[in-house]
Amino acid sequence: MISVQNVHKSFGDLEVLKGVSLDVPNGEVVSVIGGSGSGKSTLLYCINAIESINSGKILVNDIDVHSKATNKDKLRQKLGMVFQQFNAFPHMTVLENAALAPRIVKKMSRDEAMEIAKKELEHVGLGDKFDVYPTRMSGGQQQRLAIARALAMKPDFMLLDEVTSALDPELVGEVLETLRLLAEEGMTMICVTHEMGFARDVSDRVAYFHQGVIAEIGEARQVINEPQNELTQKFLSKVR
């Protein structure tokens, strides 16, 4: 379970998160929607301790993420993350990309790491690309590689930050399909997304972010189809 409790976060004078609370029980998929600059990415970065927080608390599997005593490298093994920008390691093949962290972080043998990497690559439909270099692949394939690379660490949670926004429209579908598959398998996920159809159909709940707070959160279909908050209504009418 991920538990975000009244978190505040500032960059200098700019307060980006102004008291955010969000509980995500295991097996749940939560989509986060909201305008640009509202703090969605920052929330994900705070959850896996890439960014620090100013006050409040974040618990992952009951471990206090921002406590000094927490081993952050170890914690991040439980939190897979995929970013908006393509960030495959360009000097390694697809298979090496996915096998690197299991091998050096989890200290698996080479064969063991390769085995897991192959399985996860097949999982996301890249079974025929093991020896290709990522720069030779489409954006959609690179994002699926990023998903497989994260999954190879056997995380308990996946944090996805607008993983389809840098893609050409015709490539969005294959990536969303992969995420839908993960959701069906019961992966716990927080997805920041601009894809309202995906948010409605795949997630259990949707949270609408507005200027650093969650303005509305509720059952996915309800928030997307019949938003209660005026701000949510305005946002949704604009993106449709």
């Binding site: 490298d73 093994q77 970013f83 994260a150 660490m153």
Partner: peptide, 18 residues
């Protein structure tokens, strides 16, 4: 080297040295 290479590595649990 783009900064995203660092965040990607970090998110996989890699230490700075790794």
């Amino acid at each position: 080297i783009p900064s995203t290479q660092y965040s990607a590595s970090k998110s996989l649990g890699m230490s700075s040295i790794q």
